[in-house]
Design a protein around this nucleic acid. Structure first.
Lengths: 166, 166
DNA sequence: GAAATGATCGCGGGGATCTTTC
DNA sequence: ACGAAAGATCCCCGCGATCATT
């Protein structure tokens, strides 16, 4: 459970939507947001996405509309984290080059590990990635991560293939 | 202010709807619930798009995620065409500077009307726009178009305000 | 010498700023 | 001649190929 703060008026509005005595805020809000929330409700409670999310991503119009590989790179990383936070964290911790660290929660770590590493935040994630690398290295990073996260070879192939699609 | 308790999944969902860094829970919820309400109440015509499409666009995650003003510029133009093709065409025909033509169906027209006008195709549209201009001129172009399309001042203000959001 | 990794720097696009026109 | 509007040059910055290093 989490706690959020809302203004009094909004609170009254939500409370006014109660359908049975003792109904929880979550229950009311889920009903009000029903359309958007539907898919979320049927998912296992401790996982927000599965691997199909990753596959969908790399074939999506949005993804393919993005021409800059950095952005494709980062959105793949963001989705990988979403798929499995703990596996991602383990994989991220053991991924590095001879000098450079590739992923870290701390910008300093990445800055100190090399010159001009250009760390960027991975959205919806506590992690940052190094960005100053050529395409081959970006592929290496996502491939390594996926392998360490025990993602099937078939899916890894699809993702890397879509990654470089021009 | 009041505090409510919600489950983690729902919390994630709501947090994921954040449109601006630091946006409050109230703000997010109000938007989600307001849009929801509006859609239930207003559903009179069977048009493919109305002006609300434009408003939704400029508040959408996708739009705000795009930091380059050219791209915001072009997506607004694309939506304006979708909203009303004939009004758009009329407005486009009468919009130009002292030398430059701003919109045309023909690239040549735009190239010949000035130097380095950098015409770009407006997606889902038979039109092209010139792109080599500063922010003020881009605002001028969308403002003029919207005015000539008889869009309300209030909406024009919202669109131009969101356009330059950083 | 070859392969793997690092990081410099060339290239292109965006749009502020300078130039020109009205 | 002066200010405002419009045009378009060109600086800045990000991307990532290419070159340097291990």
């Amino acid at each position: 459970m989490k706690t959020i703060e809302i203004d009094d008026e909004l609170y009254q509005y939500i409370a006014g939507q109660t359908q049975h005595i003792g109904e929880s805020a979550s229950s009311i809000l889920r009903r009000l947001l029903a359309i958007e929330t539907k898919e979320l409700v049927i998912k296992p409670s401790n996982q927000l996405a599965d691997i199909s999310t990753l596959v969908k991503l790399v074939y999506s119009d949005n993804f393919l509309a993005e021409k800059k590989l950095v952005n494709r790179f980062i959105s793949i990383l963001s989705t990988l984290y979403l798929c499995n936070k703990s596996l991602f964290s383990v994989a991220a911790a053991s991924l590095h080059g001879s000098k450079r660290r590739y992923l870290a929660k701390n910008e300093e770590t990445l800055l100190r590990s090399g010159n001009n590493t250009k760390p960027k935040l991975i959205p919806d994630t506590p992690y940052m990635v190094i960005t100053n690398s050529n395409t081959a290295r970006k592929i290496y990073i996502i491939e390594s991560l996926m392998q360490n996260m025990a993602i099937s070879t078939h899916i890894i192939e699809q993702v890397t293939k879509q990654f470089v699609t021009k």
